[in-house]
């Protein structure tokens, strides 16, 4: 649905070139929620703004729903007609909502419809529908200044959906909201994704957002995508940085040479098996649990556990084999550098 190829953006700031995006290849499939995560300054904001060409990439292409937007005429300040029309089919929600304070909630939602050129009657009907969809039907006549942050973002989402877009871009939509409101907004995005088949590209600096709504994710660092994939695949990969960040398990253990630290990941039905006690009983070993977490990610139950076994890696080949036989994913941590071996 959204494909970027070799997307590069260079800013000139005080006579120096700053590389904000470094050859980013991204592929967002139709109907999925795709999250781009990274610290501030990693380039994710530039990336999402390049998708609807609010910023013109220095090089590379952006294709949304089969249309190569980068091929359409226009400058960063002023878009050509074709690009403007393409943008009408891409919804966008913003961190600071960007609602017009001079318009009521209803009028804000009608704004994109005015731009499309819908008549008054149709605009009213459509806006009422959308406000109902985001649960704000009773606030139609209020001004944005009378709403809470979460309500404002709901208006922002209703407005973004006004043009019946296939794609929704979310620029840190929940970053200005408290945790509870964040959850409700994320749930709304997830519902819209499922009900309307909406493809969502969101950027965030919070792993929790990725965890709760995304099907796929990309990790950005220094203008580059350093990892990307579907969450279920990433979680199955012991080397995945995203998976690791989703499950911060804390301490690595004593670090003594005669110990083996394992990371066990289980998805789906696996946690139903009491594998820890089975392991302890079968092999007569003392298992030290260093950390564990179970989460629902992309709608699936996923758990991760870090355990410490006595003896070196070679002493534990048999128990590790047993765990793998149970359908668990086992990674042996190399304690000398703290990464999975």
């Amino acid at each position: 649905m959204i494909t970027t190829k070799g997307l590069t953006k260079v800013y000139r700031s005080r006579g120096r070139d700053v590389l904000a995006l470094d050859s980013v290849d991204l592929h967002v499939r139709e109907g999925e929620v795709f999250g781009v995560v990274g610290t501030s300054g990693a380039g994710k904001s530039t990336l999402i703004r390049c998708v609807n060409l609010l910023e013109r990439p220095t090089s590379g292409t952006v294709t949304v729903d089969g249309v190569e937007l980068t091929a359409l005429a226009g400058s960063e300040q002023r878009a050509g007609r074709e690009l403007r029309e393409a943008r009408r089919r891409i919804g966008m929600v913003f961190q600071h909502f960007n609602l017009l304070s001079s318009r009521t909630v209803q009028q804000n939602v009608e704004l994109p419809l005015e731009i499309i050129g819908l008549d008054r009657h149709d605009r009213r009907r459509k806006a009422a529908e959308l406000l109902d969809l985001v649960g704000l039907a009773d606030k139609a006549g209020s001004y944005p200044s009378q709403l809470s942050g979460g309500q404002k973002q709901r208006v922002g989402i209703a407005r973004a959906l006004a043009g019946d877009p296939k794609v929704l871009l979310s620029d840190e939509a929940t970053s200005a909201l408290d945790p509870e409101t964040t959850r409700s907004i994320l749930k709304l995005l997830r519902d819209l994704n499922q009900q309307l088949g909406l493809t969502v590209l969101l950027i965030t600096h919070e792993m929790d957002v990725i965890k709760s709504v995304c099907d796929s994710a990309a990790l950005m660092r220094g203008g580059k995508v350093v990892e990307t994939g579907q969450l279920t695949d990433l979680l199955a990969d012991g080397h995945s940085r995203i998976a690791r960040d989703l499950f911060p398990l804390g301490a690595f253990g004593s670090g003594a040479a005669d110990r083996t630290v394992l990371e066990i990941t289980f998805q789906g039905d696996a946690p139903a098996q009491p594998f820890v006690s089975q392991l302890a009983r079968t092999y007569q070993i003392d298992i030290n649990i260093l950390g564990a977490a179970v989460e629902t990610i992309a709608g699936r139950l996923v758990g991760r556990m870090r355990v410490e076994l006595p003896g070196s890696h070679t002493d534990n080949v048999v128990p590790i084999g047993y765990l793998r036989q149970q359908g668990l994913q086992v990674d042996v941590l190399d304690l000398s550098n703290g990464a999975a071996a």
Partner: peptide, 16 residues
């Protein structure tokens, strides 16, 4: 006028 509003309008496909 907040630059974010102008950006929002641009993202909706508005002209100058």
């Amino acid at each position: 006028v907040d630059g974010g509003l102008i950006e929002a309008l641009k993202a909706m496909g508005a002209g100058t």
